[in-house]
Amino acid sequence: MKKINWNNIRLALILCVVVFLYSFSSKRNAERMIKTTDVEFADSENYITKDIVNKLLIQNFDATTGIQKVKLDLNKVEKSIDKNPMVERAEVYATIDGKLKAVVVQRKPIARIFEGSQSYYLDQRGGKMPLSDHETARVPIVTGDIAKVDAKKLQQLLGYIYDDAFLRKNIIGISVTSYGAIAMQSRGYDYEIMFGGPINIDRKFKNYKAFLQDAVRDTLITNYKTINLKFTQQVVCTKK
């Protein structure tokens, strides 16, 4: 007579119990009702409000509470939030305790463009972003004959300024001339920075920072009318 392997039987029974409990808990979890919503922004800005996100959460339902979790199409809800022009991406999920949560990453404007009668933000990826009714971004204002400068190179220049803490704080205005050259305005000083074309960006800004350090130390900074960075080997200044 073949000996019964009780260890295998016990393992099989344990496995059956685990599967049953998992299926039971999954079913109960799916049948749980959504009790509340929670919107969280991944950044400190508020170009879009929590109320707007909440409206986007419920646009496919009569409400966000009293809905079974199993009936929520989270992917569809995420896509509806992603379509908002202020949103870069969103993650929506339901928690075990019956909360529908949305974590929203907003688009990051790096400049405000004035082009003809239009005014809009340019984001980090070079896309147009509408102005917000709720918050104004502290970014450089770009004016002039913008069509005369290569869009990709202008994006690189604006991205460089945004990524540099000193430049982001100090460069407040950028204008494009009719022949595609760039001039800048600095916070706290009334001189004009003649940048030339959006090339050799790193070298030009390093020259500018070195010049500024010396000029501030020598207290000559207020005597200048223009700071010319066109020549990568030197900084040429004109006095008032």
Rank of each mutant, 00 (worst) to 15 (best):
S175M: 05
F41V: 01
Y160N: 00
I4R: 14
H134Y: 15
V92E: 08
V149S: 00
Q234N: 12
L158W: 01
D214E: 11
K239H: 08
Y93E: 10
Q106L: 05
K128A: 08
N7P: 00
A151C: 00
K169Q: 12
E91F: 12
Y208L: 13
I81W: 09
Q118C: 00
N54R: 13
M184G: 04
V70P: 01
P140L: 10
V77Q: 03
T143S: 08
G188W: 07
T64W: 06
T64E: 04
G188N: 08
R187M: 10
P130N: 09
K148M: 09
I172H: 11
A63N: 15
R203A: 13
H134D: 08
A165L: 06
A90V: 09
T177W: 09
K55T: 06
Y179G: 03
G188H: 03
N170R: 14
N223D: 10
I67D: 04
E45S: 10
D164H: 15
V18H: 03
I110G: 07
R168S: 14
A137S: 13
D190F: 09
T65L: 02
N54F: 02
T64M: 06
L15N: 01
A111S: 09
T238R: 11
N46F: 02
S186R: 11
V77R: 00
N200F: 14
I182L: 15
D73V: 01
F231Q: 03
V216S: 06
Y208E: 07
K206V: 12
L154P: 01
P130S: 06
F211R: 07
G126Y: 12
Q185S: 14
Y191E: 01
N228E: 05
L131Q: 13
E45T: 03
K2A: 00
D82R: 08
I48Q: 04
L158P: 00
Q68N: 10
N75G: 09
G173P: 01
L21Q: 08
I199S: 14
K153F: 02
I172P: 02
K225G: 05
G127F: 13
D38N: 11
F20G: 03
D150F: 11
V235M: 05
I81E: 02
A147T: 06
K50Y: 04
K50Q: 08
G66F: 07
I171S: 10
A102E: 06
H134N: 14
N200E: 14
G66S: 07
D38H: 13
K79Y: 05
T95L: 07
K230Y: 06
E91S: 12
V53T: 03
Q118N: 14
M194W: 12
R112Q: 13
I171L: 11
K204W: 10
K99N: 04
V216R: 15
S23R: 14
A151L: 00
S26Q: 13
P85I: 00
E91K: 14
T219D: 09
Y121C: 03
E78Y: 07
G188E: 07
F114E: 10
I9Q: 11
F61N: 12
T136K: 15
L100V: 05
N223R: 13
D73M: 05
M194T: 06
V92Y: 11
I193D: 05
T49E: 04
M129Y: 05
M33P: 01
S178Q: 15
R203Q: 13
D164G: 03
L122Y: 12
K35M: 07
V18P: 00
